[in-house]
């Protein structure tokens, strides 16, 4: 059975956290600098992002989930999400001024 809950929550969070990120700025600048080869920039960016997410999935499920208890992971991830949220809201990280 396909679990839509995990799918949609991951989709939303990754999409939102990728927005306004340094990766996005880089792709934007690369696409702007090579307007004739925009498709190849998009392809390169997409393949790189898929490869990195593959690495993350393998590391997360095979290394972190094996050596730590689920409760510890839950607490640590809650803490990290809160810290990242506070830092993002107050503009400590992720502030890139283009202009």
């Amino acid at each position: 059975m396909f679990k839509w809950r995990f799918f949609l929550s991951t989709l939303g969070v990754v999409f939102l956290s990728e927005m306004g990120d340094k990766t996005q700025i880089t792709t934007l600048l690369l696409a702007g600098s090579k307007p004739t080869y925009v498709i190849w920039v998009a392809l390169g960016s997409a393949t790189a992002l898929i490869c990195t997410s593959f690495c993350e999935v393998i590391i997360g499920s095979h290394i972190i989930a094996r050596y730590f208890k689920p409760k510890t992971i839950n607490l640590v991830s809650a803490f990290i999400f809160c810290v990242l949220g506070i830092l993002l809201v107050f503009g400590v990280i992720g502030n890139i001024n283009l202009y």
Binding site: F6, F7, T10, G12, G60, H62, I64, A65, S77
Partner: peptide, 22 residues
């Protein structure tokens, strides 16, 4: 993504699909 997969290791391919799509 790392935290999501370590939270639900059984759903890793689902999460991989969702994150690459996003």
């Amino acid at each position: 993504v790392l935290l999501f997969t370590s939270n639900n290791p059984r759903e890793k391919w689902n999460i991989f699909l969702a994150s690459s799509l996003a």
